[in-house]
Amino acid sequence: MNTSRLKHFFWQIFPSVLAVLSALLIGAAIIFAIGENPLQAYAAMFQGAFGDPSSWAETLQRATPYIFGGLAFSIATRSGLFNIGIEGQMYVGAIAGAIVGFSIHNIPAFLHIALALAAAALAGYVWAIIPALLKVKSGVHEVISTIMLNYVAYALTAYLTVRVFHEPGAVAQTYKVDPSAILPALMPPNKLNTGFIIAIVLAIVIYGFLFYTPWGYNLRVTGLNPGAGRYAGIKSTRIVLRAMLMSGAIAGLMGAERSLGIYGRFINSFSPGYGFTAIAVSLLGQNHPLGIIPAAILFGAFENGASFMSLQVNVPRELGLILEALIIVFIAAEHFFRDGLRSMLKGDKS
């Protein structure tokens, strides 16, 4: 029984491991082509990402939005939805958190933080209601509606930043949030903050929800085989609606972690595409809440380690992004890895 579990685990993570290894291999070829030693470069990268506590902190700091975003994406995906609107939901969450952060004064920190996070989650939730309802009521594909809402979110947050809550100056940013609304740093001076802890706890809670409760079961059945769900009496529309809203709420928290934990305010178009990279993270983690954590840390490590590496050896820091991109390519080819290799190794009997 244990071996079968182990086997199952192996087959589950196998494509991801293979994708990472393939990306590293091609990355090595690129480094070699530049005329540097790949082993040396990777060693520098590793040291930059995990060499000492402060590099760990930076890696985890960079991983945090990917954990939130990966969770948001995976919960939608598990119900059969492709939420490509995490970026937009994150933006509205980030600004909602900031607004509560600088509009309310003189309340205890824990309450202020809780209110700001709740506002952020609510904003992401509301942003997800539109595509969720469009999907359930009239069958509008969520990919279309969420992409369009991303643009609306950019424009809305830009308007609020520049026209309504603009802090005087040349930068398009809002007022600073009150200190009581700042997510406490875990290892100052690094910006790694309690948002990371929240992300980890959330991952564990979602794991339990998905695999140990009837609701999570409903959600997975709906995503995997809505036909069987129908006959089992599972109302797929209700499940899909809820999954999308949950996804949006988590994306909202993802934004609040940045505005309340890193910048201390909302900055216009602060994201380098967290919400999109998070999709790759979730896929690399096999859409599994606990798989997303190492996947996110890996992405954080690539970005963090690459900047350190560029100082040590003559390889540009963009290598980190190249590795991420390569992983995305290989993960996109996952079906080949999983199904193709599996049937090659185990044989398919038809």
């Binding site: 079961y217 409903n218 059945v221 085989n225 036909g227 069987a228 089992a232």
Partner: peptide
């Protein structure tokens, strides 16, 4: 496989489908 079982589930998960609540 279309309406009776979930292909990706194991035996235990499939054995409670419809009665899982």
């Amino acid at each position: 496989l279309k309406t009776g079982l979930v292909r990706e589930f194991n035996v235990r998960e499939n054995a409670i489908l419809g009665y899982h609540t």
